[in-house]
């Protein structure tokens, strides 16, 4: 019986992200304990759950904005060193940790655009000063990205001169400019006026359709999650209650708690 050449042999996709046994406490209160999650490369994972269930904390741990009290975080098979959090102003990080984390990008609920920079300057800041791209090159790429989200005309505006929806689109573009392989979205539409939600969701939808990037999306927009996600992880009080393919979850959630949540949300 002929055997297939090695190159054609099926290899399961590499885990983009692997969290194992994470514990996180804030001032004595345990928010996560023994939390584990594997995310294969290219997956669009919707992380949902009630307020205070720990969704933001999970994203912040992955992004390196919080430091786990125990457990391991692996990115593409390489374990991330803990961030040192001794600094009173800026958390200090060993340079190799920054290097390892480079494939990760994050978009915040409150945009957090740099207030002293224009939209374009926000986008080119890291490509120039972190990746070392030439200003001309960074500018060209940034304008193309801004154009793709319909903001080329507003490139020279400051954040305070933009609507919330426009700011959030700039923030997404700013994250994309570093060509992330893993993108974390923390309720990116939650602080937008209802009529601005659609424009941001449209950008994310296009992103999910085009790019190979792994996405973890924390959202309360169930319709959007249903449309975009391959997989749903439902959390409550720091624990994963249900973890299923998205289609199955929205068709018939198994756990009574996720059923209750879904009923409330829709």
């Amino acid at each position: 019986m002929p055997t297939a050449p090695d190159a054609l042999r099926f290899t399961p996709p590499l885990d983009a992200l692997k969290l194992t046994g994470i514990r996180k406490t804030f001032g004595g209160t345990t928010i996560l304990s023994g939390f584990s999650l594997d995310v294969p490369e290219g997956q669009r994972l919707a992380l949902i759950g009630g307020s205070g269930s720990g969704k933001t904390t999970v994203l912040r741990l992955i992004a390196g904005l919080e430091r786990p009290d125990a457990g391991e975080i692996e990115l593409f098979g390489r374990q991330l060193p803990y961030r040192r959090f001794a600094g009173r102003l800026i958390p200090d990080d060993p340079p190799e940790a920054r290097e390892l984390r480079r494939p990760v990008g994050m978009v915040f609920q409150h945009f957090n655009l740099f207030q002293h920079l224009t939209a374009l300057e926000n986008v080119i800041e890291a490509p120039i000063h972190v990746l070392g791209q030439s200003p001309a090159e960074a500018r060209r790429a940034a304008m193309a990205l801004l154009d793709s989200v319909g903001l080329a005309d507003l490139a020279d505006r400051y954040p305070r001169q933009l609507s919330g929806g426009q700011q959030q689109r700039v923030a997404i573009v700013r994250a994309l400019a570093l060509k992330p392989r893993v993108l974390l979205f923390d309720e990116v539409t939650a602080s937008l006026d209802p009529e601005k939600v659609a424009e941001v969701l449209a950008v994310m939808r296009a992103l999910a359709a085009d790019e190979r990037v792994t996405m973890i999306i924390v959202t309360h927009e169930m319709g959007f999650a249903r449309e975009v996600a391959d997989r749903v992880v439902f959390m409550q009080r720091g624990v994963i209650v249900e973890d299923t393919p998205a289609a199955a979850f929205f068709a018939a959630p198994q756990d009574p708690r996720s059923r209750a949540f879904l009923n409330l949300a829709s």
Partner: peptide, 16 residues
């Protein structure tokens, strides 16, 4: 949030 945005763009502290 300004510091956190800079950190997730992988800026070293001196640049932040």
């Amino acid at each position: 949030g300004q510091i956190e945005a800079a950190l997730v763009l992988h800026m070293p502290p001196s640049q932040v």
